[in-house]
Amino acid sequence: MADNKMSTRDLRAFFHKVEALHGVTLGFAGNRVTAIIGPSGCGKSTLVRCLNRMHEVVPGAACTGQVLLDGEDIYAPAIDPVQVRRRVGMVFQKPTPFPTMSIEDNVAAGLKLNGIAVSRAERDRMVEESLRRAALWDEVKDRLKRPGASLSGGQQQRLCVARALAVEPEVLLMDEPCSALDPISTARIEELLLELKENFTIIIVTHNMQQAARCSDFTAFLYAGDLIEFGETKQIFTTPARRETEDYITGRFG
């Protein structure tokens, strides 16, 4: 799998002494959407959080094994986690616009908070491009100075996508980005995924199997911290190789 943008090798994640991931080896193809499905508590979120070194932010959390980004181990001692997170962006379950910032400041937050000075024009261009990519520009272009929290839930989530894109990451991790959204907003985010994969590698955690089937190219099924099955989405959902996968996608458990 030479064209994998990211991959994991024997990735084990721990919370204190409890092992939450039991050695996951998995590849994520570049410019594709990979969905990670599985029942609650199976380690989906933990897995994606290991991919941009957000797992270790939780007290007592640690992991072993390798995570390769363009062939380079992001857990190598010389690697700064801050730099990893700029290359591997993340959108969370709940929309989290920064409450003290306006819509445009939220989008530009990645630059501003990192103390990167850009010209006004450059900043405006970047804000517009990111909002366009997140399919939010037309809805907010007349109220960029309003607080980010004044938007609806679905708009806030797209604002968070725009904010993540503004730092120009290579990979975008999405941890159940639609679970707090209504069906219309969910559909917008799903459309967005298809556009975004032109430029980004996307890894999405979802509880919703239809969502995985609709918008992903590859699907990984996780159960109780083990990777049960990985393959093309079509194959996973039509001819799963493993019994557990079939039981899960047909709704017999989980």
């Binding site: 730099q83 990893v84 969370f92």
Partner: peptide, 17 residues
């Protein structure tokens, strides 16, 4: 909220900032 801190960290903002 803890989520705000994580959101900032995930943007590649150092912890002190």
């Amino acid at each position: 909220p803890h989520e705000l801190r994580e959101a900032a960290l995930a943007l590649g903002v150092p912890r002190w900032r």
